[in-house]
Design a protein around this nucleic acid. Sequence first.
DNA 1: ACCCAGGGTGACG
DNA 2: CGTCACCATGGG
Length: 291
Amino acid sequence: MIMKYELVNDTLIISDVKRFDLAKCCSCGQAFRWVSDPNGMDWYGVVRSRPVKVSQEGDRVLIHPCKAFDEQLFIDYFDLERDYESIEALIRSDPRLSVCLPGASGIRVFNQEPFEALISFIISANNNIKRISGIIDRLCRFCGDQLQLEDRILYSFPTPDRIAALTDEELKNIGVGYRAPYIRASAKRIQEGYELETIRSMSLTEARKEILTFMGVGPKVADCILLFSLGHTDAFPVDVWIGRAMKELFFDSEPPTKAELNRVVESIGKYSGIVQQYIFHHARMVNLGKK
DNA sequence: ACCCAGGGTGACG
DNA sequence: CGTCACCATGGG
């Protein structure tokens, strides 16, 4: 059953949404800017410069405010048109993956803005999720635009020219550390006209080669950008968590070679990147491989 | 004090 | 091609 939606009093109400856990998706480390109110029911964030409050009641998702003709924009962001029942069925059918369910059930891969993903995941390198979130929050407060939502003030993700213009001292105060030159150089390249969207229609191999030309983007960050913002559902980011998880789940706790790991990833298929997010969530929840 | 975190760069073989 | 020291920062 595909979802349905209607717009009522500036609230987008999406019904019959299966396999979607809003809180899990907002806090699993794929996006760094969603914050919940104290009771954890309402999630506040910014989607393409629109400040929104999102909540979930059973199989309904409520997004407020939403103006006419913005419906598809939010449906796309939260990936609500994709059939996650079949993706979870795929996971369940493989005993090595099925251990990730039910803990990770309801995970969806959001479709973030490419420039925000580019900068966010450059910041993510050799860093932890809590600190990444703090850095990005300070960045948005410092040079994003204020956006009012009810009694709250949210911030847009800064434009490329704003970030490109930041001084070393400003970036240091924001706390980006040694990543400052990577951030500024990448922002400058976008500001000068580079179109990240052209990467969306490329093959995975071509897309990787292209995004890797950005300073501060290596293989792992490249796959994060491709998966989380450019529609490459088969991009499979391998960080320390995924490395440990794949070793445990697929290789009997013996470290695989890159070729061996690649073979497993390709066997998962064209949604391997989405499956990766289930594995990532599972690994973090059970503290896999750590004491 | 040491180790770790959604790793990448540059130098050197 | 592969390896490896180094890189800011804050929390455990």
